[in-house]
Amino acid sequence: MIKAGQIEKGMALLIKGAPFIVVEREFVNPGKGSAFVRAKLKSPSTGQVLRETMKTQDTVEDITVDDRDSQYLYNDGENYHFMHTVTFDQFEIPMSSFENYQYLMKDGETYRITFWGDIPLDIIIPYKVVYEVAEAQDAIKGDTVTGATKVIVTETGLKVKVPIFIKQGERILVNTETGEYLERVNR
């Protein structure tokens, strides 16, 4: 058990018997009110999102989790399929719980998966990832507007707004939380 004031992003908590991952956590002091902890929690099995505002001194049940390196194999439209890199055990995670992760994960790449016992709770994607530009229209000649952008598609299908000079086949660094282009990566 921990105090609500100790909750941190990424932590796993047991809420009414079900595991939830903390996706957002902030302290709030409403005008003329005492401090509360506001958290956004997500159920990995159902994708259900829960908002909780607790007193900082309230207790919550934290659960012990461990991270296991697992290779992302493919998705079948309903589930992401992974294989544990040590035991070669295969498991699946519902796509509805991690929407749009198919555009962030690369087939065959290894990701850290947070487990609670045998239940996978969270897929950890690095904050910054290099993607290859699979589809990009050529810049229109004469378009010299500073800061002009276009939308490209990465090899994973992620659509990213990039500066106009980015070409097909080039590699770019992307913030996976916001989906924003960060920089071009030189070969």
Binding site: I15, V28, P30, G33, S34, F36, R38, L50, R51, E52, T53, M54, K55, Q57, D58, T59
Partner: peptide
Amino acid sequence: GISESDTPDTWESLFNRIFLTFVEP
């Protein structure tokens, strides 16, 4: 669906929890 607190809520703390959960965001 506001969860129960360990210490009894006052009208004010309960109102604040509703406001912070559903209204302010």
